[in-house]
């Protein structure tokens, strides 16, 4: 059983997924934050792979990528960070999220191999629709990595069937038509859509984009198997980037998000 599958099976409540950008504000601080997340209540950790042109992200995540890149982030550094985390944590699933170009530059097969050996469990590539994903899908699956597909408010039933082919791990429901960290989703608008999705698949459905507070988390947990918080955490990292106890402050934030699920 994969770590992702095991995590969802073991929980009797929706999972909390937290997002940080690798190497933000710098490698050492970012690794410290990453290591603090599971104990604070993150059930799954998403790590953003820094990219210069993140077109599906709002300004908060874009700036995080720039901070990381300015501090020397690279794909090699991101994988190194996962490896260092894995040395002390064998259970928490790690999902890398980002864009295709840095993977393409690294080499698709080399990336899948190195990511798997570092301890990556899943990939969310936001600019890679199923139509373009054959090569990465093949490489990732050969190394036991899940391709996590994005489903959006614009996904109809026909498109959903295309998206579900080859999907594994869980599904990521983008709750708004927009970029990360901007408006919040309207629960009543997305609930029927998620119900429709669940009639077509047994995969867990995580909901993300625009979820910021413990109250948002509590609301989304009513309809989702997992709730993703990203920009709210990354904004906190931006505000406190020079603070020596950054990891403690983020841990506190994640604790309050996670207590909304208990």
């Amino acid at each position: 059983m994969s770590r992702i599958e095991h995590t969802f099976k073991a929980l009797d409540r929706p999972a909390l997924v937290t997002f940080i950008t690798a190497g933000d504000p710098d490698y050492a601080a970012s690794l410290k934050v990453l290591k603090a997340l599971p104990d604070a209540g993150a059930d799954i950790v998403e790590i953003g792979m820094p990219f210069t042109d993140p077109v599906a992200d709002g300004p908060v995540i874009e700036l995080a990528g720039q901070r990381a890149l300015n501090a020397g982030a690279s794909m090699g550094q991101t994988l190194k960070m996962v490896r260092e985390f894995r040395a002390n944590d064998q259970n928490t699933p790690i999902v890398l999220m980002g864009y295709m170009n840095p993977i393409f530059a690294y080499g698709i097969e080399a990336f899948a191999k190195d990511a798997a050996s570092a301890g990556v469990d899943g990939l969310i590539i936001v600019d890679l629709p199923p139509e373009e994903s054959a090569d990465l899908q093949k490489a990732a699956n050969a190394h036991g990595i899940d391709i996590i597909r994005l489903i959006t408010p614009t996904t109809d039933e026909k498109r959903l069937k295309t998206l579900l082919e080859g999907a594994s791990g869980f599904l990521y429901y983008v709750s708004i038509t927009g970029v990360t960290g901007t408006v919040s989703a309207d629960l009543s608008a997305i609930a029927p859509h998620i119900e429709m999705i669940k009639t077509h698949t047994n995969l867990p459905v995580a909901v993300g984009f625009g979820i910021k507070t413990p109250e948002d988390v509590k609301n989304m947990a009513k309809i989702a198997d997992a709730v993703v918080v990203g920009s709210a955490i990354v904004q906190n990292i931006a505000d406190l980037k020079n603070s020596a106890n950054l990891d403690e402050v983020i841990a506190k934030q994640v604790k309050s998000l996670s207590s909304a699920l208990k």
Partner: peptide, 12 residues
């Protein structure tokens, strides 16, 4: 070429 875009845009 191809279509490397966010899934939100794919139906459009």
């Amino acid at each position: 070429g191809g279509r490397y875009v966010a899934e939100t845009l794919m139906p459009l």
